[in-house]
Design a protein around this nucleic acid. Sequence first.
RNA 1: GGCCCCAUCGACUAGCGGUUAGGUCACCGCUCUUUCACAGCGGCGGCAGGGGUUCGAGUCCCCUUGGGGUCACCA
Length: 495
Amino acid sequence: MSIFWLIAYHSLLIAKLTLMVVTRIAPSPTGDPHVGTAYQALFNYVFAKQQGGKFIVRLEDTDRTRYNPESERRILEMLEWIGLSPDESPTKGGPNAPYIQSQRVEIHREHAFRLLELGAAYRAFETPEELAADRKAAEAAGSNYRGYNRRYRDYPKEESDRRAAAGEPFAIRLKVPLEGKTIVHDLLRGPVEFDNAELDDKILLKTDGFPVYHLAAMVDDHLMGVTHVIRAEEWLTSTPFHIHILKAFGWEEPVWCHTPLLRNPDKSKLSKRKMDTSVDSYRAQGILAEALLNYLGTMGWSMPDEREIFSVQDMIQHFDLSRISLGGPVFGLDKLKWYNGKYIREVLSLDELAERVKPFVEKADYNYVSDTYLKQVIEALRARFETLQEFVDKSVYFFRDDYPTSDKALAKLREGAGFLPELRELLGQLPDFLPETTEPALKQFAEAKGVKAGAVMQPLRAALTGSLETPGMFDILMLLGKERVLERLERASTL
RNA sequence: GGCCCCAUCGACUAGCGGUUAGGUCACCGCUCUUUCACAGCGGCGGCAGGGGUUCGAGUCCCCUUGGGGUCACCA
């Protein structure tokens, strides 16, 4: 971007700041809460908060065929889970209620008809089948332009009125200019030019009386005082149409800011066909909201000081919309997991971590005896799990006696079969199982046997945990306690 | 295909005319060590290509190439 535009857009931005900043996300309740929604929510939320403005959530459910009420609830819940709580939303309400678009159809309809009266829009009487046929014909003719053929654009008003009065179904389309250019002033890209000749007389109001996204979004954004439309890049090409809707009403444009699109590892637009895009699913796997948010914050954005670990609060403090980079970032699980591990072992307090782990442990039907014991186990395993579910998977032997034994562990166990009874004897005689006691005892034992410590520890580890990848032996002995240790060694001799 | 956007290590990114092109993940070593991790240290690895502009381009312009988005009575 040139310096000129940089300055121009910054002053544009600053001019807007004299008003209250209002941002929004407008998810459509058609499926699982999407990480792309969380991503947009993050940027909209952070920017609004930084500017002392408001962040609104509005549900775009005007497509009745794809509508899913369950999805609606889960999207709102997801936002609460990640802590990006809207100032106004369907559940919170607010001065611009309702925040569910289907409850605003009357408003949209009125606005569509206003445009009709203004002569900025017109009735179109063809059926979807006719349109499909038109498209097919255009395709067959080898035409590049497959848009609407504007059959009714200049239809005589009397005719149109007559057919409408006769009860004939119709859609309402916007009369977009046939010539000239439309310039989208994108905060990140500068001016983006579109030839009006490339545009289409898109539908504003469907035959079923429901508005199409474009109309509903522009009307609602205007009515709700949205000042900055921060949305995914996939919307960039429909922005000229949005501008023409706004113009037809005589309304001011918001600041447009199109963020890069999250990608699958193959670089295509993030999709559930290729990736797990469900925030709920990450949550169920034991990904922490903080880690998810931190990771999303590095998608197309970075802290000015380049630190990798930062919270939403940190973002609010240092956020700069214009620092968003435009290459489409790949949403990759490796780094997400790393972030999660980092939060588990360095960011969350032990108490906090224990609270997060609890539901997972309970779901696994683990008997964790006490909070103290749970915390001790967590501490022992802390550097060894990256998701909460992984904790469950790697801690079975601390909570249940029916833990599985891996083949490798079994082999190790058999290697030590010769001295395990003797070792059991020794352990049984120890006054306590504190590391200060067990460590020298075990080391002396190994020495007496003339083997390295590992040769004793590994079979013991295998016997007590069924695994070869565990916390330190002395921690295990202490946590398990004498009774369980002796029991397990006894049982091991039968394996 | 038309239109639009984008382009620094495999991935996420810093860089906004003068840098030995920096950091993070992943990967590979080493150290620590009772295993596995963690941690620390080190390594591998990049400005897509070609033209300009300039004393000087990763940084500015153009072209090519590549990737993506969009062309619905979906959002």
